[in-house]
Design a protein around this nucleic acid. Structure first.
Lengths: 146, 146
DNA sequence: CTAGATGCAAACAGTTTGCGTCACT
DNA sequence: AGTGACGCAAACTGTTTGCATCTAG
């Protein structure tokens, strides 16, 4: 029973209409393994609603992301960004303005996999995004909330 | 002196022709702060070569990335990917096939900023990409190198 | 009944490609 | 001289938007 009522509860909590399309998109994302793209979700949803529009899928993905029902895999999905800094370093990523600030490697405690881990993956390096709100945005927010 | 000869050395080492356009693009990327987009680089390069084509800028960025002269800020710059996994976790990212595998949070030693750090950034969470070669790709490579 | 959701097509942004001409090596 | 680079325009992919119609609340 929980699947349907989960969905309705989520919609109520976020002030969203519980439409059929929205529900199928939600269930499809939950059912797909890994990190599906909009196109993948669209293909899968069409098996249940052949007449659905790709725009509807995009609009609902956006809606779910904005209400925090789903997350984006990465904050870097936009256009290609070039990194000239050859020193190993990490990034501070602001969720508000999407700005990226370099963080020197020694500003972070060393990152390590627990030695129990293997899976045949050959590690080359660790790239850490410190996700949060930058100084500028948190000040701007403080003002707007007066 | 080193700037020009740096560039020529890089070109020789990577088997690239040392053209004027290529040099200006290289110098521009090195001079720009942060993580410029192709468009930003193009705008800046045009100050020195007004007739340059955007396609040339793109082609050269690709060339530099492929030869490792520059890096991409992130391996996630493609299309939007949706993450339904609500549990905190990290990612194994394969540089060869670009696949993304979830890594449970407890498979990594806890990530921490050194307490000296501040800059007014409000940290929400750490998103770690363990960058390397996945099992499938490393096996494929072993075979192709026979 | 009405705000918000859907479907369609057109618009857009970012990026790549084909091809004729030009320039490094 | 020949291979690869450039410039241009057209093509392409991923995504958003405007608008008329429909539907959940």
């Amino acid at each position: 029973m929980s699947s349907t009522s989960d969905f309705r509860g989520i919609c109520i909590r976020h002030g969203l209409a519980a439409t059929h399309q929205r529900q199928v998109i939600y269930e499809t994302v939950m059912s797909l393994p890994g990190h599906p793209s909009a196109e993948t979700i669209y293909e899968k949803v069409r098996e249940r609603i052949p007449s659905i529009s790709l725009a509807t899928v995009y609009k609902n993905i956006r809606t779910f992301l904005e209400s925090g029902v789903f997350q984006e895999v990465s904050f870097h999905h936009g256009s290609l960004r070039v990194e000239a800094n050859r020193r190993p370093h990490h990034h501070l990523v602001c969720t508000r303005c999407r700005s990226i600030i370099d963080l020197e490697e020694d500003e972070l405690e060393p990152v390590r996999l627990r030695d129990t881990y293997a899976r045949g993956f050959q590690v080359q390096r660790f790239a850490v995004d410190v996700v949060g709100i930058c100084d500028t945005c948190s000040k701007a927010e403080a003002i707007s909330q007066k």
